[in-house]
């Protein structure tokens, strides 16, 4: 990792996230890679709280806190204003949770990237509405307990594939990243920063509180999500050019599921079914990347 990344901090030492919060780790990596000439837009999400109440702020960059569903539109407006004023150097970044991206903010996001606005949209995904107390979102994975999908009626729908939807807009850059892979994460942020047009980064950010895991497991669980192919690390350029960044060690998904309280109601049979779903998704991704056998990677 470059020295620059190790030294630079975009966050102050204090914030009000839960212990082990993946979203706090993700923000730290993001700002390390973005540098000072950054404006952040934060629609309603955990980070509306984490950044701290008036008159404090955990962030060293200017932040515009905004309404839940406006992440794509507000950043478009800031970009337009900076362009008119001749500031093309500052990067405008939306930092939204999965609810603000997959669900309520989806329209504004789709609108912004369809216009290929020169914005960088980062979704930190903790797979449910964590800030309001762990309610299901369209990003919540198949099989999960949440406070609105109790263990007796757990979520039976697949997680929405936001990366493929964004790639279908044929924008210059779409990628996934994980808090367990900082070098890969920051390389992608730096790459996205240098690209003009709409960029989208989907960051896997574990949530000890909502996933019912010990706080010290936050990074390990995020790593396992990648190692099991549940959350593959990959990039899509211009909607067509796929690059897979991590070669899976072939861990079984049940090892990941068994560590988390949110999945403890699942039977062996359920887990087998989920393994099949993950395998199917992985195969589809390999096909898109033009890889027909693992040895080609």
């Amino acid at each position: 990792m470059s020295y620059e990344f190790l030294e630079r901090e975009g966050m102050y030492s204090g914030h009000v996230a839960c212990p082990g919060c993946g979203a706090a780790i993700a923000m730290r990596f993001l700002l390390k890679a973005l540098g000072e000439k950054t404006v952040l837009v934060i629609p309603a999400c955990c980070w509306s709280i984490i950044a701290g109440p008036y008159p404090q702020s955990a962030l060293r960059v200017p932040v515009l806190h905004t309404a839940f569903e406006t992440g794509g539109a507000v950043s478009s407006g800031i970009r337009a204003a900076l362009d008119v004023k001749g500031d093309t150097e500052t990067v405008v970044v939306t930092w939204a949770g999965d609810g603000g991206t997959f669900d309520i903010g989806f329209q504004a996001l789709s609108g912004a990237v369809e216009r290929n606005e020169d914005i960088f949209y980062v979704c930190y995904d903790n797979e449910a509405y964590m800030n309001t107390g762990v309610q299901r979102s369209s990003s919540t994975p198949y099989g999960a307990w949440t406070t609105t999908t109790p263990a007796t009626d757990w979520k039976k729908m697949r997680k929405k594939n936001i990366v493929e939807i964004l790639a279908a807009h044929r924008i210059p850059y779409v990628a996934t990243a994980s808090i367990a892979f900082p070098e890969d994460f920051m390389r992608k942020v730096k790459k996205a920063r240098a690209i003009k047009g709409s960029r989208f980064l989907h960051v896997y950010a574990s949530c000890p509180t909502g996933w019912r895991i010990p706080s010290e497991m936050a990074v390990k669980i995020a790593r396992m999500a990648v190692q099991t192919n549940i959350f593959p690390l990959y990039e899509v350029e211009n909607g067509t050019k796929y690059t897979i960044n991590y070669r899976s060690k072939g861990y079984l998904v049940k090892e990941y599921f068994r560590l988390q309280g949110r999945f403890k109601h699942l039977t062996e049979k359920d887990l087998e079914q989920i393994q099949e779903m993950i395998d199917e998704d992985w195969k589809l991704l390999l096909q898109k990347a033009g890889i027909t056998s693992i040895s080609e990677m």
Partner: peptide
């Protein structure tokens, strides 16, 4: 929403 962003950025 876009104007909220633009206006906060001084436009």
């Amino acid at each position: 929403a876009a104007l909220i962003g633009a206006s906060t950025a001084g436009a």
